[in-house]
Each structure stands twice: as structure tokens, then as C-alpha cells.
Design a protein around this nucleic acid. Structure first.
Length: 773
DNA sequence: AGTATCCCCATTTTT
DNA sequence: TGGGGATACT
């Protein structure tokens, strides 16, 4: 027997050894799913299957990287880097880079992130003369996104009775038209959004038999992780790819399906068994992660859902401690309590920061936890903030790189055409866009032929200079790698210099971010990559751009750093921690008020609760607050109904607040409850502190403007006569002295020190000043 | 062209 | 409450 099979239980081993034919592994939480997947791939390779013939699809880059690493470890060689392991999106993007021309896209197509996509939605909504207040880009985009995830194109959308009815009822009958215009615009821009990477992949396989044939035969073995979270588009693609060999192995857990709002459907599990003959189903029911108590609670919770795949998770682990249920007066108290408890876990049980996770339903809840952790000097990392690549300065820089690779990328072009200021203002940009739409050419083509479109002479010169600059960058593409080009762009354009000259704290930070970006590009070009299909590691700028859009902020954080991890429950899926806090177990928050209207929604919330509980290995705290600030006003919340689904016997009653099961909110001032109140701060002390902080931050430290009544004889002077050192009167700011004169002749700016209002920069074209002396 | 200000609006989000 | 976007003002 191979060494790698030794650490497996019977079921796991069976899953690994079943290499041929369709296989569905129902893997309960903590049942060693990743171990089975990685061992199975390693086994395939040990049996002589070529790594080039194996495709493994995951949902996160992290999961993909981990799998790759573990397989390499099992095999002890470098073969694993020839595997096609990655997220659905990154693998399809890679294939698209070779095939996109077939569906009319440039092979160096741009990938639009959600911000880009929404911006395009907004632009086309405006162009259709629809009100963006009514057709909210966010909502419209989400609707388009679900359509694509169900493989519904614009034409089908507009003729689909049910969808049209829905839109009519919402009084948004034009969404189909926006969708159509959006798709056309993306195509014109040579850009695909995240959903297109699936949608277009499907179209490619569907309409180009030779392409389908090629990949069907390439991928003899296909493995899908987190199968319960796949959407119809992903399902159909897998079905097409796997149709020849039918060696499709899917791994999932219906109890952990928490992404239906993104189009995922558990139907795929049922459909899988219908679409393939003789699907072998293996259930992994032994949990290796959690204590018996935690597992029992999880089982009790999920019991309340109807229609689960029957399975009973069990463990040979110790019984473990009971869980701790804590009620606090306010959300801030909850934060304090958690920070205190973490301190206790560290001191008394010698846990490290990284052993602890704080999980919550919504990102907004992180604030109270952050504040208390900071106050106690407990280092933490928040997951789910904006990604490095979403920062303005980074997006600006990347927009330059994007326009070099794909000049049709209008979103990128709009971003940088006048940044830094080069005299191509809003009016000119609008004119260019209009001309592009009217002539059905790209905005870039308009700029290239600017003399034909009636720009003013000055603008024309500016545009010509800009076009020349981008062209000169573009000419570097065939010979230079990503770093060389990026570095050159940074040197040649003034905006990096501008950032460098900004010595404010944020300015310095922005400059450092740009440096970091360049470093990461350098790292990209210097790290050897997989040599898939004989391709040499792609160090081109296009290759770089393709991968960064698909990175998330979780990919940029070091999971091993010794910090407490704060994240939403969604983000915590697949992770485990010795100590887990789940906060905000309140009606309206968890289950969330937006998701209690149907049984399906409520059951998904419950699965979310199931996921949070099963993240814990040994210690689990659940907390909820009586009152919590929401959008600035205080809200009363009842304890979550999910708390009632936990049998009393698993709850630590000796613990503060633990015995509280009377959730009426009244008549429960038992001793434990009082002790808790005293220990973790009560509503009495909190508002005081809050007031203090808010006065410190708001208004008072801002210099107040002192009103000035202009002199009766106030007459604006000729600003060209202004000189340094003159005393002047300003209509609003009063009297002051001119410290400095700068700016160009057509836009002069004066720095004036006002007696009452401090230093201000005044644009002389607009402000009215009277020279006093 | 840049900024200040006002007003509006808020689940979850692997990519 | 607070962040973003449109608008108004300089």
C-alpha cells in the first residue's frame, strides 16, 4: 500500500481509490475533504496519469494554492505544477487567453472587476436615457449577474416571460435593454466581467466543437471542490468538459451551501446524479476537527432544515467543553467582552492570537470588535476590506497598464485620460465617447483620429501627445516583460511624481502602495510559473493583468501571522480555529432581516450558522447584544431564534449569561446576568465614552469658519495686479495677506493667510478679492 | 479644475 | 453612523 493511503479512513480511502467514473463525495464539515481531494490527485499521478490531464477547480485562490502545495508534498516532486488547479475563473481566464479570438474578443482581453462592471452599467443606463436613481447600477448589475450565472443572455432575458414579469412588477422593464447594451459595450471594450469568464466559456465550448473536443480530451480527470456552491453555468461547463471521459469527481456538502444569493444551487447535486450513469456516492461522516459537543450542536442546528442529504456526522474526539453563550447590553459591550475573553484565552489557556477567530454575519459588525481589540493591544487582521488592487492609486496605475495591453478598454481610458491633468477635460471626454458610440468605434480610435472629430486646437494637441505616449508604451509589449513596462510607465507619466510630492500622511501611504505594486510586479516577472502545455511562464504584461483582477484581499494576507482573524462567516468557510467567537446572534441580524421571507432563505441562514459553529475545534463563544447601533440609531434586538435550537445541555451555565434561555428580554436579572453586566461594562458607562470620542472627532478640532461681513465699499480688484505680501479682503474669509502666487496664467492660485480663517488656497479666476494695500 | 457640501443609502459576495 | 456620488461654489 502506498504511504499516502495510510492516514485515511475506509471511506476516505475508497474515495481516493475510485478514480474512474462519476463520483460524488458528500463531505461533512471537518471530514478531511481537502485531504481526500489532494490524495486522490496524487494517487492519480502515482498511477501514471499525466498531470497535464488533470483539472481541479476550486472557488478560492487560497484553496487552489493549498491543494497544489499539498500534492507536491505528497509526491515529493515538482510534477504538481503541471496540474490545472485553480479557481473556475482563473482557469477559464487562462483558457480564454488562448481561445478568445474565436468569439471575437482580443486574446489580451481585459477582466472587469465589479467596480468596472458597475461603472459600465451606469454609463449605458445613462446613454439609454434611463434614470440611474431608478435603475440603480448595483441592482441592475446583480440582476445581469444572476442571468449570466444561469446562462441567460440578453436576448433570452428580454424574451423570458418570467423575468420580464419580475421586472415589470419592480417597475424596471428596461433591465433587459440595459443588459443588452452592457454586453455590447463590454464586447466593444474587449472586456469580460467575472460572470463572462463562465458565460463565454460555456458559449465557446458550445459553439466551437473543435475547442470542446480539445479540452474534453485534455482533461481526462476533473475534480470540483465546494460543489454545493456551483451555479448553473459552472454545472453546464463541467458537464461539457466531462462528457467524454466522465471521470468527474465532485466534492461538496449540502449543509454548507451558503452562496445561493450568488446563483449557486443545490439542484446541481441532484442533477449530477441524473445526468451521469451510475454515479458512485461516498459519504464522509467522521469529523476530525471538533469536539463532540460542538458537533452535537451542529447536528442539532441542521436538523431544523428540511430536505438535507441524510448523514450523521460523528467524531472520536473528546467531549470537550460546553459552549459559552453571552448576552451583553450593547454592541460595544459585546466587543469588550470578546476582547476580554480573548485575553483570558491567551493567558489562561496559552492560545496564540492566530488561534482565535471572530465571525459575524455582516462586515459592519467588525467595528466594535476592532475598537476593543485595539484598546487591549491585541493584534488582529480583518478580512473582507477593500483589496489592495481596489485602491485608487493602484487602479490608476493599473489603468495605464490595461490601456497598453488593450486600447479598447474604455473604462481604463476614462480613468487616466486626464490623470495627471493634461488638458483633456470632461467636455472633451464626453465628445470622444459620443463620437465613439455614433461611429461604432472605440474611444481609443476616436483619439487616434482626433482631428476628424472637431476638438479644439489645444485639446487636439493634448490628445495627440497622449496617443503618442500610449503608443510608445504599447510598442514595448512584444519585447519587454511586465515589470519593465510598468517601471517605464511610472517614470514617463507624471502621476507617480505627483504622488511622491504629496507629503501628507495619506500621500506618503499612496506612494508606498505604488512602490509595493511595482515590487509585486517585479516578483511576478521573476518567479517561475507552471509550464503548462509547453507554454513558457508568461511574464508579459497581459499575463500579469489577467491574474491580478482575480485576486481577492484574502489572497494578499498572511494566514499564518499571529493575529486574531476577523471575518464574515462566508469568508470563514473552509477554515478552522481552536477558538471561535460568533457575534451578533440577534433576530434581524442573524438571521438577517433580508433573508427571512422564505423558507429557502431562512434555511440558508441556518446553514450559515451551521458553518460558523463547525469552524470551532474546541472552544465556541456565541454572543448577542440587547441593543446595537444601526445606521446611527439605537436598535433593540431579540436574541436569534437559532439560539433556541441549541439544547440547554450543551450550554455552559456556570458562565456569565450562560443560563439565560429566557429570551423575552424581561425579568431575567439573575445573578449570572448581573455579574456579566458588571464584568463587561454596561450601558451606563458606554455612552459617556462615546460622547467623548465623538466630540473629539467631530466639529471641534475642525477650524470653524468665522463669518465675515464685507466692507460696504467692497469692489473686486483686478487680480492680475495681485502681488506677494499684499493685504486683501475676501468676501467671505475677511482680511488677509498674500503669501504666495502660483498656478498657470490661465488658472492663477494665491495662498492667503487670513486673520480669522487661517491659510487658504484661492482660485483667482473665481474668488472675488479686493486689494487693500 | 478642484473642492466643499449636501443628500442619499445602506445584508452576505469565493471571482 | 459614514461613505459615495451629484451638485454647487470658488
Amino acid at each position: 500500500m502506498h504511504d499516502y493511503l495510510k492516514g485515511l479512513n475506509d471511506r476516505q480511502r475508497e474515495a481516493v481509490l475510485t478514480t474512474e467514473g462519476p463520483l460524488m463525495i458528500v463531505a461533512g464539515a471537518g471530514s478531511g475533504k481537502t485531504k481526500v481531494l489532494t490524495t486522490r490527485i496524487a494517487h492519480l499521478m502515482a498511477q501514471g496519469v499525466d498531470a497535464f490531464n488533470i483539472l481541479a477547480l476550486t472557488f478560492t485562490n487560497k484553496a487552489a494554492a493549498e491543494m497544489k502545495e499539498r500534492i507536491g508534498h505528497i509526491l515529493g516532486n515538482r510534477e504538481s505544477r503541471n496540474l490545472y488547479i485553480g479557481t473556475f475563473h482563473s482557469v477559464f481566464a487562462r483558457i480564454m487567453r488562448a481561445e478568445a479570438h474565436r468569439i471575437g474578443y482580443p486574446n489580451a482581453f481585459t477582466i472587469y472587476d465589479t467596480d468596472d462592471a458597475k461603472s459600465v452599467v451606469k454609463a449605458v443606463t445613462n446613454e439609454l436615457n434611463l434614470d440611474v436613481q431608478h435603475y440603480k447600477p448595483n441592482a441592475v448589475y446583480n440582476r445581469i449577474s444572476s442571468a449570466k450565472n444561469s446562462l441567460v443572455g440578453p436576448k433570452e432575458y428580454m424574451t423570458d416571460y418570467y423575468l420580464q414579469q419580475e421586472d415589470m412588477r419592480a417597475n424596471r422593464p428596461m433591465i433587459g435593454h440595459i443588459y443588452d447594451a452592457y454586453s455590447k459595450r463590454c464586447f466593444k471594450n474587449g472586456a469580460m466581467d467575472f460572470d463572462d469568464l463562465l458565460f463565454k466559456m460555456y458559449e465557446l465550448l458550445k459553439h466551437f466543437p473543435e475547442v470542446l473536443h480539445k479540452y474534453q480530451h485534455k482533461f481526462k480527470y476533473i475534480l470540483i471542490d465546494e460543489y454545493q456552491d456551483t451555479n448553473p453555468a459552472q454545472y453546464e461547463i463541467i458537464k461539457l468538459l466531462g462528457a467524454v471521459h466522465e471521470n468527474v469527481c465532485v466534492v461538496g456538502d449540502d449543509a454548507q451551501s451558503i452562496y445561493s444569493f450568488r446563483g449557486a444551487t443545490i439542484q446541481n447535486i441532484l442533477q449530477f446524479q441524473k445526468d451521469y450513469d451510475e454515479v458512485k456516492v461516498i459519504k464522509l461522516e467522521q469529523n476530525y476537527r471538533s469536539t463532540q459537543n460542538i458537533l452535537s450542536i451542529a447536528n442539532e442546528i441542521i436538523k431544523n432544515n428540511k430536505g438535507q442529504i441524510p448523514k450523521t456526522l460523528f467524531t472520536e474526539n473528546a467531549t470537550g467543553e460546553k459552549i459559552k453563550l453571552v448576552r451583553t447590553m450593547t454592541d460595544n459591550d459585546e466587543g469588550k467582552f470578546v476582547a476580554d475573553a480573548i485575553q483570558e484565552q491567551k493567558l489562561r489557556y496559552h492560545h496564540n492570537n492566530k488561534d482565535v477567530a471572530i465571525l459575524y454575519r455582516t462586515n459592519a459588525q467588525s467595528r466594535s470588535f476592532e475598537e476593543s481589540l485595539r484598546r487591549m493591544n491585541i493584534p488582529y487582521t480583518i478580512y473582507g476590506g477593500i483589496s489592495f488592487y481596489q485602491r485608487k492609486e493602484i487602479k490608476d496605475y493599473i489603468a495605464y497598464l490595461r490601456i497598453i495591453v488593450n486600447p479598447k478598454d474604455e473604462e481604463a481610458l476614462k480613468r487616466i485620460i486626464n490623470y495627471p491633468v493634461r488638458g483633456i477635460g470632461k467636455t472633451s471626454v464626453d465628445r470622444a465617447i459620443l463620437a465613439a458610440n455614433e461611429n461604432n468605434i472605440s474611444m481609443w480610435q476616436v483619439l487616434e483620429n482626433a482631428q476628424m472629430f472637431g476638438f479644439k486646437a489645444g485639446t487636439l494637441t493634448a490628445i495627440e501627445e497622449f496617443v503618442l505616449m500610449i503608443r510608445s508604451f504599447h510598442s514595448m509589449l512584444p519585447t519587454k516583460n511586465a515589470y519593465d513596462i510598468a517601471f517605464h510607465v511610472g517614470k514617463q507619466t507624471a502621476f507617480v511624481k505627483e504622488l511622491f510630492n504629496d507629503k501628507s500622511t495619506e500621500g506618503v501611504q499612496r506612494y508606498e502602495n505604488v512602490q509595493e505594486l511595482l515590487n509585486s510586479i517585479k516578483e511576478f516577472t521573476e518567479t517561475p510559473m507552471s509550464e503548462e502545455s509547453g507554454e513558457v511562464g508568461d511574464k508579459s504584461l497581459a499575463g500579469y493583468l489577467q491574474q491580478i483582477t482575480l485576486l481577492t484581499d484574502a489572497d494578499q494576507k498572511d494566514p499564518d501571522a499571529d493575529t486574531v482573524k476577523l471575518m464574515t462567516i462566508h469568508a470563514a468557510k473552509g477554515l478552522e480555529f481552536p477558538v471561535v467567537f460568533v457575534g451578533g446572534l440577534e433576530e434581524g441580524l442573524f438571521p438577517n432581516a433580508m433573508s427571512i421571507n422564505t423558507r429557502e432563505e431562512l434555511e440558508e441562514e441556518r446553514r450559515l450558522f451551521y458553518v460558523s459553529v463547525t469552524r470551532a475545534k474546541g472552544t465556541l463563544y456565541l454572543s448577542y447584544a440587547n441593543t446595537r447601533y444601526k445606521f446611527g440609531n439605537l436598535q433593540q434586538n431579540d436574541p436569534s431564534r437559532f439560539i433556541d435550537e441549541i439544547p440547554m445541555e450543551f450550554i455552559d451555565k456556570s458562565f456569565a449569561g450562560g443560563g439565560v434561555k429566557n429570551h423575552s428580554g424581561q425579568g431575567m436579572m439573575g445573578s449570572a446576568f448581573e455579574r456579566m453586566q458588571r464584568g463587561f461594562g454596561s450601558a451606563k458607562t458606554e455612552p459617556k465614552e462615546k460622547t467623548f470620542v465623538s466630540t473629539l472627532l467631530s466639529g471641534n478640532n475642525k477650524p470653524k469658519e468665522v463669518a465675515h461681513v464685507p466692507s460696504p465699499n467692497f469692489v473686486p480688484s483686478d487680480i492680475t495686479k495681485l502681488e506677494q505680501g499684499m493685504r486683501v479682503e475676501h468676501q467671505k474669509f475677511g482680511f488677509g495677506e498674500v503669501l504666495k502666487l502660483e498656478g498657470s496664467s490661465h488658472n492663477p492660485v494665491a495662498t492667503i493667510k487670513f486673520d480669522e480663517n487661517g491659510e487658504k488656497k484661492i482660485m483667482l479666476n473665481y474668488a472675488k478679492l479686493m486689494i487693500v494695500t
